[in-house]
Amino acid sequence: MSEEIKVDKVMDLKGLPCPMPVVKVSKGIKEIEVGQVIEAQTTDPGALTDFPAWARTSGNEILKTDQDGKVITFFIKRNA
C-alpha cells in the first residue's frame, strides 16, 4: 500500500516532543502544492491523536498512518 502513495516531501520529526511536530508539519505543508503529499516521521506518541486533530482542523488529509516500533509515520495530503 505504501508503495502506491507518491511522497513529495519527507519530514524527519523524530525526537521532537509536543508541540513541535504539529508546528513543523503545519509549516512544511505550506511548502508543497495542494494535492501533494508529506511523509512525516515522529516519535511523539501524542502525535497519534494530535496529527488527526490537526488535519481535521486545518482541512488536510491523513492518507495513511504507519507504526514501526517507536516511529510513527504519517502520509498527509495537502488539501487546504
Binding site: C18, P19, V22, S26, K27, W54, T57, S58
Partner: peptide, 11 residues
C-alpha cells in the same frame, strides 16, 4: 506558549 504555537499550527 505551547498552546499558542499549536493554535497557529491549527490555522
Amino acid at each position: 506558549l505551547i498552546i499558542a504555537s499549536g493554535a497557529v499550527a491549527m490555522g
